[in-house]
Design a protein around this nucleic acid. Structure first.
Length: 269
DNA sequence: CAGCAGGGGGCGT
DNA sequence: CGCCCCCTGCTGC
């Protein structure tokens, strides 16, 4: 929920984590083939006990979970099925909660929205982020999280990707955004110096000198299938040192971005 | 073909 | 644990 900066980058992929412990976890789950938890009944093995227990439920003949609502006889083999049943049937919560931020179509489940975003709007996952994240907005709808906080190393890497000259404003005026926006905050001073001459080709659109709050960077790249794909990144030149206050500004970045899409003036903080 | 939903797995928190 | 992934069958336009 809380905005944070991922300072710790995985040496083996583009993943960035906010803490060393979370990076350690990531490396264990992502880059280790060690699966110490093995199923006695089949070939299944996994990396933690909870996943093994979930798997064991699938072997039981009788549904392992029952709805505990009075007089309800619903049962299922997975806990998440029970929970979704309870929400839908006993709490009357069947309204679609996930909304496409491009065409406003609503979906009952996040993964169905994911399919929609990928098939209809050609959204891609940036390298190192093999999933979308959805964020609840003030209107109660879950929408694609367009902004993430990443490390400087990721920024450098993005800047090294091949780019084509494509007007930012033209791209923004096309209502279909085909990428994910990453907001990048520099690391603490002293580690790496500002890179000069970052490829230079003018696809970056900088805010005014007086308010160097952000740079929006549009990367056009070609996928393995030869398809053209566009990824938007927001490179923030935020404070040089970590904000002392634990309270982030938490302005609604989505709203700000939508403002950008309609106004030529770019003001991101 | 698009959306819905159940089942099962991966993995970040 | 919770969120999101894939796979898959069903349904309706």
């Amino acid at each position: 929920m809380r905005n944070h900066v991922n300072h710790y980058k995985c040496p083996l992929c583009d993943m960035t984590c906010p803490l060393p412990s979370s990076l350690r976890n990531h490396m264990r789950f992502r880059h280790s083939e060690d699966r110490p938890f093995k199923c006695d009944c089949c070939d299944y093995s996994c990396k933690n006990l909870i996943d093994l227990q979930k798997h064991l439920d699938t072997h039981s003949e009788e549904p392992a979970y029952r709805c505990d609502f009075e007089n309800c006889t619903f049962s299922a083999r997975s806990l998440c099925s029970i929970k979704s049943h309870y929400r839908k049937v006993h709490e009357g919560d069947s309204e679609p909660r996930y909304k496409c931020h491009v065409c406003d179509k609503c979906f009952t489940r996040g993964n169905n929205l994911t399919v929609h975003l990928r098939k209809k709007h050609q959204f891609k996952w940036p390298s190192g982020h093999p999933r979308f994240r959805y964020k609840e907005h003030e209107d109660g709808y879950m929408r694609l999280q367009l902004v993430r906080y990443e490390s400087v190393e990721l920024t450098q890497q993005l800047l090294q990707q091949p780019q084509e000259g494509s007007g930012l404003e033209a791209s923004l005026n096309e209502s279909s955004l085909q990428g994910i926006i990453l907001e990048t905050v520099p690391e603490e001073p002293g580690r790496k110096e500002e890179e000069e001459g970052k490829g230079g080709e003018g696809t970056a659109l900088s805010a005014s000198r007086d308010n160097p709050s952000s740079v929006i960077h549009v990367v056009n790249q070609t996928s393995a299938e030869g398809q053209q794909e566009i990824v938007y990144y927001v490179l923030s030149e935020g404070p040089r040192e970590p904000p002392p206050a634990p309270e982030p500004p938490s302005g609604d970045i989505m709203e700000k971005f939508q403002g950008i899409a309609e106004e030529p003036e770019i003001q991101m903080v």
